[in-house]
């Protein structure tokens, strides 16, 4: 017979799909993962990458819960494609020009409010995002009062969307002075979006405003080095990246 252990063993978690109120009071789908203990725990809003609200970003959300955070990932494409397969939803969102910045901020604000209402949440909330979600994590941190933000290979912060793009990615570097919290940036040296020149420009701008930030660029890694099921995965960069995220959120979101 297998016995049932206490509910606060490290790594024990519960995960489910819920409905939250996003931008404009819209009801949107979100994926919630929480440790089974009583807390208190910090909160993490996970901002998915451009390929969507998919299996790999749900795995990341569960990983944050296993690390001791209440993690919530809003489905940023819910309005365009409710109930659709993640790749179909991402294609629809791309065809429509992507997620408007104002709506993204509203959805992250809704996720934050949901996390802060949790009795087991300690009231501190950070964001983490990948790819376009990295830019959106930075956007959230210059638009909302956060406790920490992680941006993984965020393209478009310095120069906006590249020429020919139908997506409305405005440059955000001019808003660096509004950064509300410490920022951790993780980059691949071989990435072209963002390039190392853009990383250096953002670093300089944040320093000029006295903003608390910490950047790591990994040699031999390009874009999407955290993606374990893509050829872009780079084990050394991903392992150190997770180590940096763990330490960073531990310092700023811990109880």
């Amino acid at each position: 017979m297998v016995g049932c252990m206490s509910h606060d063993m490290p790594g024990d978690l519960e995960a489910q799909t819920i409905t939250i109120k996003g931008h404009g009071g819209d009801e949107i789908e979100a994926y919630l993962a929480e440790p089974r203990g009583s807390g208190p725990y910090g909160g993490v809003v996970v901002i998915h990458h451009m390929p969507g609200y998919d299996r790999s970003t749900k795995e990341i959300t569960r990983r944050f819960a296993a690390m001791g955070y209440v993690a919530l990932m809003p489905n940023l494409y819910h309005r365009e494609a409710p109930g659709a397969a993640p790749d179909d939803a991402a294609a629809t969102a791309r065809a429509q020009g992507g997620v408007p910045d104002e709506r993204l901020v509203g959805d992250v604000a809704g996720a934050m409010a949901h996390l802060k209402s949790f009795p087991k949440c300690n009231g501190k909330v950070g964001t983490v995002g990948y790819c376009s979600g990295g830019r959106q994590s930075f956007l959230s941190a210059v638009s909302l009062q956060l406790d920490a933000a992680v941006a993984c290979y965020p393209g478009g912060v310095v120069h906006g969307a590249p020429p020919g793009s139908p997506l409305s990615f405005a440059p955000l570097i001019g808003r660096s002075k509004d950064l509300s919290c410490p920022l951790l940036g993780l980059f691949g040296e071989e990435d072209k979006f963002p390039s190392q020149e853009e990383v250096a420009t953002l670093d300089k701008e944040l320093t000029s405003h006295g903003k608390d930030h910490e950047f790591h660029s990994y040699p031999g890694a390009g874009h999407a080095f955290f993606d374990v099921d893509r050829p872009s995965y780079r084990v050394e960069a991903a392992l150190d990246g997770w180590k940096q995220v763990t330490a960073f959120f531990g310092r700023h979101l811990g109880s």
Partner: peptide, 9 residues
């Protein structure tokens, strides 16, 4: 990289 470059037809 994510190019975001997209052509619609």
């Amino acid at each position: 990289m994510c190019t975001y470059h997209t052509e619609h037809l």
